[in-house]
Design a binder for these strands. Structure first.
Length: 261
DNA sequence: ATGGTCGAGTATCGA
């Protein structure tokens, strides 16, 4: 089973590239973030033509998340689970696809350590942990993936000193992320590559991509029974190249099927 | 040395 996550930075602007990439990589499940579409503008037919059933949680101009699946889509939850404080923005989508509980996230950026949105980011991550407790079971197959807007540790940024004092690297954000993972999740990229300093996002400006100045903020977490079946994982840097790329690269992980040797 | 780009939409804001 092949699962991918990609912040596409506008699905309207990126649809052609996304279609081409899906045809090349053939994931079974794909999580998209920053579609920047209303639900009625989501190109479900384009994905159906490629064999994907899709569900989208959007608001229009900003945010927006989707799950595409060749293995069915069931038990969909838009945003936080009932009983939790609801989100005014479309940043979270949960569905069951081929027996895997799939949770995709677009965590608030935070803007700055002294900005109100920074506190919102911290409380949002705390609510995500509560959401997992309500909507998933860590002893089942669960994937929690997307743009977390947090680099888990200093290996995940090009220059820790240059990033110090900004969002994405602050101790409180990293702790909030660790508490989400503490529900029972493994960062499968870091499990496979313990030393590598590879990134998933690069600012469009200043040729940062070509200078290897990025961050690893797009993460794919798996519950124990899924994580132990990890076969391979990669960040598809090629998808960040060429004309009109997203500022994020996709992350792809392959898991052995249950019962496979 | 400074600032450097996209995408939303059409002036700026958000990232």
């Amino acid at each position: 089973m092949r699962i991918a996550t990609w912040n596409v930075n506008s699905l309207k602007a990126r649809l052609g590239r996304v279609e081409q990439w899906l045809a090349e990589v053939t994931p079974d499940i794909v999580c998209l973030q920053e579609t920047k579409l209303a639900d009625d503008a989501f190109p479900a037919m384009a994905f159906a033509a490629l064999g994907y059933e899709a569900v989208h949680h959007g608001e229009g101009r900003w945010n927006g998340v989707a799950i595409l699946s060749r293995l069915g889509v069931d038990d969909v939850v838009d945003g936080f689970a009932p009983g939790l404080e609801s989100d005014t923005e479309a940043r979270l989508l949960t569905a069951t696809c081929g027996g895997v509980r799939v949770v995709t996230v677009y965590v608030p950026n935070g803007r700055g350590l002294d900005h109100p949105m920074y506190q919102h980011k911290l409380s949002w991550l705390a609510r995500l942990r509560q959401h997992l407790e309500v909507t998933a079971r860590a002893d089942h197959d669960v994937v929690v993936c997307g743009d977390f807007n947090v680099a888990p540790d200093d290996r995940d940024v090009w220059d820790a000193a240059a990033c110090h004092g900004g969002t994405h690297v602050s101790p409180a954000e990293r702790q909030a992320l660790a508490e989400v993972a503490g529900w029972g999740l493994t960062d499968v990229f870091r499990k496979r590559y313990q030393e590598d300093q590879l990134f998933s996002w690069w600012d469009y400006r200043a040729g940062n991509f070509h200078k290897h100045m990025g961050m690893r903020i797009d993460l794919l977490y798996a519950s124990p029974p899924l994580a132990e079946r990890l076969s391979w994982v990669l960040i598809d840097r090629n998808a960040r190249k060429g004309k009109l790329p997203s500022d994020h690269a996709p992350l792809v992980a392959e898991f052995d099927d249950r019962g496979a040797p």
